[in-house]
Design a binder for these strands. Structure first.
Lengths: 291, 291
DNA sequence: CGAGGCTACTTGTCATGACAAGTGCTCCCT
DNA sequence: AGGGAGCACTTGTCATGACAAGTAGCCTCG
C-alpha cells in the first residue's frame, strides 16, 4: 500500500530518519489505506459542501495543496481532475480553480426512491398501500423482468402522498426473490422506505432505466389522485436491477403533473444531470399554451 | 507547445541528432497542436467506433501504447482515464482495459434538436412553420429569458413531423439578437435545422434545461396533432443558452406520447444518460394501467 | 493428476523535474 | 495618466522512475 515515497513529509522537512521513527510512520500509513488523491478530493469535497469554500471562491493552488498534504503534484492534480469531472470546480490555465456549485446532486437514490426524494426536499412523504399480493406474472411484466409468463412475482400498489396530498400512484412488480422480503410480517410498507428496507437486506439496486410519457387518468387513477377522469398524468415506467443487469423490479408510476415535474440539465462537454422537481402551488395558468 | 521531451521517438531509437533533423521535427510537431493525450484518446475512440476494437476486446496495454506513440505513461494513462470516464472502456488492476460499448450517445445535440434526433434514428423529420413573428415579450417568457417584459423577442411556432406524422408542436421564443437571424430572408424554417443554422452564425447553444410534465391538448394542439381535445400530451419546456448561462431561447414543446418518450438511464457511481425515444407503433394497450 | 507457489505481466499510485502557456499585477516609460 | 513590457504565479502537458497490487499462466511438488 505504501512505498518509501510515502515519507515525503519527512524528506521535505529534511529530518534524519532513525529506524524507530520509520516503523512508527508505517503504522500510521497502514491505517489509511485509501489512496492519497482520494483523500485530497474527499477533503476538498467536504470543505465545499460545508461552505468552508463558498461558491465562487478560489481553491488553494496546486502548490499550496502539495505543501498542505506534503504530496507531489500528481495526486493533487488527480484530485482536482476528479472534482472537475463532477462539475464541482471550474477554472483553467493561469487561473486558480474556482468553486462552481456547492452541491452536486446524487440523482440515483433520489430518482429511485420517492421517500428519499421527498426528504431531500424537506417535504413529508406519505403512502397508503392499496394492495400487496403474490401472483403469476403477466406477459408485459414478465418481459420487463426477463422472466417467464406465469412465474411468481409480488405486486405492490401504493398511493404516495407529499405533505398529505395525493401525488403519485405506484404500481410496482418485484421478482419473487426480492418481493418475498416484502411479504415478511416485519415489514410495514406504510411506514418505511422500501428501498432502504431492501438495501438493508442486501438487495443492491444499482442501475435503473426510466421511460417518461403521458397518459390519461383512468377511473381508478382519477379517484385516488383526486383529478377528473381523463386528466393528463405524467407516467414514469421504471426498471431497476443489479449492477450486472439482472432486473429486480418494474414499476408504472403516475404523477399529478401539477405537483411533480422531471428536469434534465444538459450541457455540451458535460454529463447531464437529472432531477425530480416539486411544484409547490397548483399552477393551472401553465396548463394552457402561450399565445 | 512542445518541449525537448517531444523527441522521445528519436531518443528511443538512439539515432544521432544533427541540428538539421531537429528543426525539421520541430516543424512537424508544431503542426499538431492538439495535446498528445487527446490524440491518443481520439485514435482509440475512432478505432472503437469503427469496430476495429469490438466490444469485449482488450485494448493494447499501456506499455504497448507507449511504444506505439513513443510517449511516456503519463499521456497514455490520461487518455485511458478519459475513455473510462466516458464509459467506453472498463477493466482494472492486473487486467487489460476492455471495450465496454462501441457507441456513447452524444445526448446534447440530440436532445436539443428535433432534426438531429430524427436523423440519428434514421427517420425523416419534417416541419410546418405556423407562425414567425417579432413581438414584445410576455411576462412568463421574459422571466425565462432574463429580459424585461415588453422587450422584443421572436416567436416561432412549428408543427414537427416524423415520417410525415404530426408528432410535436414547438412554440419557441428567441431573444431578439438571436431571433433576428431567423427573420433573415435567406432562412427557410421549413427546410433546415434551426440549430445548425444558428451554430453556423456563431450562436453557441451549449447549456440547456428541460422540464417535463403532462398537459391536456387544447383545441389548437388537438387539431394540429390529430388527437382528441383533452388528450394527454407530454410537455417539455426548454431553456437553452450560452455556456456563461445567458438564455437564448425558451420553448414549450408538446409531444404525442404515443410516438415519443424520454428515457433516463441511471446507475450508481455513473453519470446518467438521457435520450429521446421513438415508439414505432401506436401502443394503445399501454394507455391503461395493468390489472 | 491436482494444488500450490512462483513468475511475468498488467494496471494503480506517487515522486520528481521540466517546459509551455495563460493571467494578473507591477512598474517603468512615454 | 495611460499603455506596454516584464515578471511572478498559475495551471497544462509530458518524461522518467519507482513501488504496490492484482491476474494469469506455467511449473514443480506432493
Amino acid at each position: 500500500m505504501f512505498s518509501l515515497d510515502s515519507f515525503g513529509l519527512i524528506r521535505e522537512a529534511e529530518l534524519p530518519l532513525p529506524p524507530l521513527v520509520s516503523t512508527w510512520i508505517i503504522c500510521i500509513v497502514k491505517f489509511v489505506d485509501e489512496p492519497l488523491y482520494q483523500r485530497i478530493a474527499d477533503d476538498l469535497r467536504r470543505r465545499i459542501a460545508r461552505g468552508d469554500l463558498p461558491v465562487g471562491a478560489a481553491l488553494p493552488s496546486e502548490s499550496q495543496l502539495c505543501r498542505q498534504w506534503s504530496a507531489s503534484r500528481g495526486p493533487v492534480r488527480q484530485a482536482l481532475i476528479a472534482l472537475r469531472a463532477e462539475g464541482l470546480i471550474g477554472g483553467g490555465r493561469g487561473r486558480p480553480p474556482v468553486v462552481r456549485t456547492s452541491r452536486v446532486p446524487q440523482p440515483f437514490e433520489t430518482l429511485l426512491s420517492f421517500s428519499h426524494w421527498a426528504h431531500s426536499l424537506g417535504r413529508t412523504p406519505g403512502q397508503r398501500t392499496l394492495e400487496i399480493a403474490r401472483r403469476p406474472a403477466r406477459q408485459e411484466v414478465a418481459d420487463a423482468l426477463a422472466i417467464d409468463e406465469g412465474d411468481p412475482v409480488v405486486d405492490l400498489v401504493r398511493l404516495r402522498l407529499l405533505d398529505g396530498r395525493p401525488t403519485m400512484i405506484e404500481r410496482t412488480t418485484f421478482v419473487e426473490s426480492v418481493g418475498r422480503l416484502l411479504l415478511d410480517v416485519a415489514f410495514d410498507p406504510d411506514s418505511s422506505s422500501i428501498y432502504a428496507y431492501l438495501a438493508e437486506r442486501g438487495v443492491d439496486l444499482s442501475v435503473a432505466r426510466h421511460v417518461f410519457d403521458a397518459v390519461a387518468a383512468d377511473p381508478a387513477d382519477a379517484s385516488l389522485l383526486e383529478v377528473p377522469e381523463g386528466a393528463p398524468l405524467l407516467r414514469e415506467r421504471r426498471r431497476a436491477g443489479s449492477a450486472s443487469g439482472e432486473p429486480y423490479e418494474y414499476s408504472d408510476d403516475r404523477y399529478r403533473p401539477d405537483i411533480v415535474t422531471f428536469t434534465i440539465e444538459n450541457a455540451e462537454q458535460a454529463h447531464p444531470s437529472v432531477a425530480r422537481a416539486w411544484r409547490p402551488i397548483p399552477a393551472d395558468d401553465n396548463q394552457t399554451h402561450p399565445k
